[in-house]
């Protein structure tokens, strides 16, 4: 049986990589502290493998070929795309993968557990994975199983489906018999709009949504989250708010209220930090 040693929900706003270097601007100091706490929790948990749930931003997948849920099943994984080096100063990275655990989640001969994943044997991760890893595990020495969710190009799976994804992953972890210590990291946004009318407001596009959403995670109220997180409500909050759904998957994997849940106010709205210890 696998031991779930930590579940960590963090932001991945790519501009943070440059902004948190050197003198950290006052509005981002708490965000830097949030990353430091997450890094310490991950280090103390001593995981053998990290399962990551995050959303590719039109780097691996695009409107010519869009996967809804896709798992990276590979020994070796590269990260950071060319336009992310140029626009955000992100370094290219590489890390080991863990095809065995990926296979436990997706299935071998048939897809497992009624979940129709796509897969990649050559995943190239974007900032949704790379930014959390740069802050939480810059050594890039722990094998990663990346799981991509489409939260950007409609049709987007329902909130209920994100919860089911989490339950599927948890069941696969519980049934896997290698005795692995597994940490799960999910990344995403609270209310956030990029490219729409509310881009770069310097504050949250929907503070009411942010407070409500962090409350669901803090109290483990996934039923309530499923009801409220409709396409219309998430669109109202901003076009990237769909990435909050990754945290519903994370909460469903943990299977209980978070030990710590806060949205830290800064120039990018509220940056989410949701932590669970061993579950």
């Amino acid at each position: 049986m696998t031991e779930l040693v930590a579940a960590l929900g963090v932001p991945h706003t790519p501009m943070l990589w440059r902004l948190l270097e050197g003198d950290v601007p006052p509005d981002l100091r708490e965000v830097a502290v949030g990353f430091e706490r997450a890094r310490a929790l991950l280090s103390e948990a001593e995981p053998d493998v990290i399962v990551m749930v995050a959303s590719d931003h039109f780097h691996e997948f695009n409107h010519a070929n869009m996967a809804t849920f896709s798992i990276g099943k590979a020994d070796h994984i590269d990260g950071t795309h060319r336009n992310e080096e140029r626009s955000f100063g992100l370094p290219t990275v590489e890390m080991p993968g863990h095809p065995g655990l990926a296979e436990a989640i997706i299935g071998r001969e048939n897809l497992a557990g009624g979940f129709d994943f796509s897969f990649s044997n050559n995943p190239v991760l974007d900032h949704a994975y790379v930014v959390p890893l740069l802050f939480l595990r810059p050594e890039m020495d722990i094998p990663v199983v990346p799981i991509h969710t489409n939260t950007n190009a409609p049709p987007i799976p329902t909130a209920q489906r994100f919860v089911e994804l989490g339950r599927h992953i948890r069941k696969a972890l519980d049934q896997h018999d290698e005795g692995l210590r597994v940490a799960v990291i999910a990344s995403g946004h609270l209310a956030y709009d990029l490219g729409g009318p509310n881009l770069f407001l310097g504050r949250s596009t929907d503070p009411g949504f942010d407070a409500m959403a962090t409350g669901w995670i803090r109290r483990g109220e996934l039923d309530e989250a499923e009801m409220v997180c409709t396409f219309t409500r998430l669109t109202e909050a901003g076009n990237l708010t769909f990435q909050f759904l990754n945290f519903l998957t994370l909460a469903a994997i943990a299977g209980r209220p978070a030990d710590h849940a806060e949205g830290i106010a800064c120039r990018f709205g509220h940056e989410p930090f949701y932590f669970w210890g061993p579950s």
Partner: peptide, 12 residues
């Protein structure tokens, strides 16, 4: 046009 993709190219 997808707003996120559009702004990404505007930025680039």
């Amino acid at each position: 046009a997808h707003p996120f993709l559009l702004f990404q190219v505007v930025r680039s």
